[in-house]
Write a protein that binds this DNA or RNA. Structure first.
Length: 878
DNA sequence: TGAAAGACGTA
DNA sequence: CGTACGTCTTTCAT
């Protein structure tokens, strides 16, 4: 039986987790109007539904203590005697919580004289024997002893219950240095304060582990207690009985007689009405949909019945049969590699007539590697993580012909479908079978990898026929090759200097503290400088400064507004606040980068190819597309991005003024085209035209104005906005715009015309044919319509720039590969690339980058590329 | 606990 | 009353 087929049993210690939730959530904020406290219930259920949603158990139970008394207190009266009576506010919540669970169809187990953990231990042990994958969720450390190959402990972090840490055998060994079964021996020596079980004085975890490792077991250690020297040896000898008692008490019972066994705990449908009723009583609203979602039930009101999609039952093939199958497969093959923590777990393949699948084993890998690497056309649902996982296994993937997630995004960039299940509903109007935990005898197993591939193929077929020709070209010619390039970049990562980051971080930390102290002094008391709400009180109530721009709940304290305030009514607090913000912001960014650095000393971001509505990429975990650059000091962060081991230097390449160049191309404006062909500085050229002077006589002030105007054009700037930014009268801004358009009239005509075109078509289009729908352009709501107009103005320009950069990116990658160069692209920041250059390859790489960026699109104006070189990103960025 | 709001970093 | 993003912190709901 494979893991995927094994049923999963989840057993939860309701008492300990609700208790933690009770202390994690402020009790005042969680009570019903008649005064019933609900924080423990809410916190527990919130954690619980997340757990069920994430782990999808097939069998489930929650255990509770019945009282403080148990066989342990009879054996040792002091057991847990140090615990203060749990507050009445908490106790009252337990029966209500049990009611909730019962309404949700979750078995609630308790047994007089035993603790919840004994029930967990019994069920976990039986479950393991009966072939379950068992998850134990408890806030009691003693449950560590239960962990085995098949039993994993989920243990809440220090604060609250939102984060659960997984303890499998490896994690326990890593943390304690001994196998899980021996954890109680450590605990017996060290003692457990919360259970009122004193340990051997002066013996902590370190000593306990050392002794147990040395003697092999607690028993052997105690037998040889006379051989331990020193004070700790004496202490041990004086506490032998205590240690034995601890060990007896912390042993969880695995044979508690229970009315049910694991097999009786199959997840069953929740009673929707009962859940609604009790949640209404507890005044839980947001929790309701989450519960229905986690338990796969329908909230009830509007049920659309869709047929459940069907697929052939995939054959499970061995490596040789798989190799034979792919060799004879015709047409595009659907491929699904299921992942477990970034490594392949199973693979499923589907042709038009059959589906096959297998666990991912070395034999399967070797059997399929050749076909995977070949040009044989393949279709995926979200290929990038799968391609990356295969790459880590040393398997290249070629022929990545279609990705249904990318295709779905191209057609509906505003509401990209995130999963294959979404697309099966949209494209096939069927429901993808999902493992339905609410059904006693599941009608539908979850779809297997082979079936997922089958559906992926079918979705792709429908998408292909429904996709406009030009959009299909964007997918084939831009997005698919980009996908592979991005996978390479993410795998490569970028090297960062921990030393540089750490040094800068502590510097900024000290500065932030000092600034905060000065700021408090300036107003005579402390205040949370990170709280806009508290700052408003200080600025507008205490200091009586003039009111700033309104926000939804008061007045803004953003940097621009504070700078304005400084002009009208300066107060020392303002400058200190601004500088504090700057220092803490930089520190945050630095610390985030530091923690994101992998064991290889590099940061591996994830590029979200469907992350924008315009065609741009986005970058997450961490976002490497918003690393500071504007201030001299912030560039020290860029200086921490360095060339990595085995490489010689970093190369940066960026398009200068690519959006204005696209504007020149799209509008065909002769003046703007001439500006770019003249080689003159753009803003100087434009300034000369607008103000009617020689280029040499364009003053810095004039240049600033036309520069703001040019950039603003791309965003749909108004006279109001322009006046605001340039801090000039609105009338002057209006005049500037009129002068600008008098000289560059085709630009205005283009912008107007493109919005009108979009209004008629319902979408905008980039130079390459990427579309973005704009239904709001015909809205009767003026705010909606005007917002859509500005976005529609911008979309073809920003989108065309994104298209061009993508083309450049994958061509550079391909050229570097075919020239057999080791150098590789690491980062893309919209109009900039960062390349890691190997020794001796600079000239070749620079030539490739320059050429591929410049010729990525054929415009009426040249694409200018700036190249920089240096040992770090800051140096290279000049 | 998790969603929303506010602030701010980039192109 | 300027487009496109992601992340962090605080506040608030419940």
């Amino acid at each position: 039986m494979t893991d995927a087929e094994k049923p999963t049993l989840l057993v939860v210690d309701g008492h300990s987790l609700a208790y933690r939730a009770f202390y994690a959530l402020p009790v005042d904020n969680f009570s019903t109007k008649d005064g019933q406290h609900t924080n423990g219930i809410y916190g527990f259920l919130s954690m619980f539904v997340n757990l069920v949603k994430a782990e999808k158990p097939t069998h489930l139970a929650v255990a509770f203590d019945t009282s403080r008394q148990s066989f342990r207190t009879r054996e040792y009266a002091e057991y847990k005697a140090n615990r203060s009576e749990s507050p009445a506010e908490f106790k009252g919540q337990i029966p209500l919580l049990q009611d909730c669970l019962e309404a949700m169809g979750v078995p609630v187990l308790k047994k007089e004289d035993f603790e919840a953990d004994d029930i967990l231990a019994t069920l976990a042990t039986q479950g393991e024997e009966q072939g379950f994958t068992v998850l134990v969720c408890s806030g009691d450390r003693d449950t560590i002893q239960l962990v085995t190959e098949d039993i994993t402990l989920l243990y809440p972090n220090v604060q609250g219950v939102s984060q659960l840490k997984r303890y499998d055998t490896d994690a326990v060994v890593e943390k304690y240095g001994l196998p899980p079964a021996q954890y109680p021996e450590i605990a017996a020596l060290v003692g457990e304060t919360s259970d009122n079980l004193p340990g051997v004085p002066k013996v902590g975890e370190k000593t306990a582990v050392k002794w147990l490792t040395q003697w092999g077991s607690l028993e052997a250690l105690l037998d040889n207690a006379d051989k331990i020297t020193g004070v700790v040896g004496n202490n041990l000898r004086e506490h032998l009985d205590g240690v034995r008692r601890n060990r007896t008490l912390n042993r969880l019972l695995r044979d508690v007689e229970l009315p049910v066994g694991p097999g009786d705990l199959a997840v069953k449908p929740l009673d929707a009405q009962a859940v609604r009723d009790i949640f209404a009583r507890l005044e839980f609203r947001t929790l309701l949909p989450r519960v229905f979602d986690a338990f796969g039930a329908d909230a009830g009101d509007s049920e659309e019945v869709r047929p459940t999609a069907t697929a052939p039952t995939p054959s499970r093939l061995d490596a040789d049969a798989l190799a034979a199958w792919v060799a004879s497969a015709e047409g595009t093959v659907g491929v699904t590699v299921t992942l477990a923590g970034g490594t392949p777990a199973q693979i499923g393949l589907a042709s038009s007539s059959a589906a096959v699948e297998a666990d991912w084993t070395p034999a399967v890998r070797d059997a399929l590697a050749g076909w995977l690497a070949s040009d044989a056309p393949k279709v995926f649902a979200d290929a990038k993580p799968q391609v990356k996982a295969l790459a880590r296994e040393g398997v290249g993937v070629g022929g990545v012909a279609f990705d249904v997630i990318l295709a779905g995004w191209l057609v509906r960039p505003s509401f990209p479908d995130k999963t294959l299940a979404d697309l099966v509903e949209r494209a096939l109007d069927e429901k993808l079978p999902v493992a339905d935990p609410t059904q006693l005898v599941p009608e539908t197993e979850g779809a297997t990898p082979g079936q997922l591939s089958w559906f992926t193929r079918r979705v792709a077929e429908v998408q292909r026929t429904e996709m406009p020709e030009r959009v299909a070209e964007v997918l084939d010619d831009i997005e698919m090759p980009t996908l592979t390039a991005l996978a390479d970049m993410e795998l490569a990562g970028v090297a960062v200097s921990h030393e540089k980051l750490a040094g800068f971080s502590s510097e900024l930390g000290a500065r932030a503290d000092a600034l905060a102290r000065d700021a408090y002094a300036a107003i005579g008391h402390e205040v949370n400088l990170g709280s806009p709400k508290q700052l408003q009180e200080v600025l507008f109530d205490e200091l009586q400064l003039p009111k700033t721009r309104k926000t939804k709940s008061g007045y803004t304290t953003d940097a621009a507004a504070l700078a304005d305030l400084q002009e009208s009514a300066d107060h020392p607090f303002l400058d200190l606040l601004l500088r504090h913000r700057e220092a803490t912001k930089l520190k945050q960014i630095i610390d985030a980068l530091d923690t994101a650095t992998g064991a290889d000393g590099r940061i591996h971001t994830t590029y979200v190819q469907t992350g924008s509505q315009t065609g741009r990429l986005s970058s997450t975990d961490p976002n490497l597309q918003n690393i500071p650059i504007r201030t001299e000091e912030s560039r020290r962060i860029r200086a921490a991005f360095e060339v990595g081991e085995g490489y010689e230097t970093l190369l940066t390449a960026d398009y200068s003024q690519i959006e204005m160049r696209i504007m020149a191309h799209l509008s065909g404006d002769p003046g703007l085209i001439e500006a770019f062909n003249s080689g003159e500085d753009l803003h100087r050229f434009v300034g000369a035209r607008v103000f009617g002077v020689e280029p040499a006589d364009v003053t810095p002030a004039m240049r600033t104005k036309v520069k703001a105007m040019s950039y603003g054009l791309v965003y749909g700037l108004s006279a109001f906005g322009l006046s605001k930014q340039l801090r000039i009268e609105q009338s002057e801004a209006k005049k500037l715009m009129l002068e600008y358009f008098a000289r560059f009239g085709a630009v205005r005509d283009y912008l107007r015309g493109s919005v009108e075109q979009a209004r008629q078509d319902g979408y905008t289009e980039t130079i390459f044919g990427r579309r973005r729908p704009f239904p709001d352009l015909t809205s009767m709501n003026r705010v909606l319509r005007e917002n859509a107009e500005r976005a529609a103005l911008n979309a073809p320009i920003q989108g065309s720039a994104a298209d061009i950069m993508k083309v450049a990116l994958f061509r550079i990658r391909d050229d570097l590969a075919s020239a057999q160069l080791r150098s590789r692209v690491l980062l893309q920041i919209h109009d900039e690339l960062v390349v890691e250059v190997a020794a001796g390859e600079w000239d070749a790489v620079e030539q490739i980058v320059r050429a591929r960026m410049a010729d990525a699109a054929e415009l009426t104006v040249p694409l200018d590329v700036q190249i920089g070189r240096g040992g770090d990103w800051d140096e290279a960025g000049h």
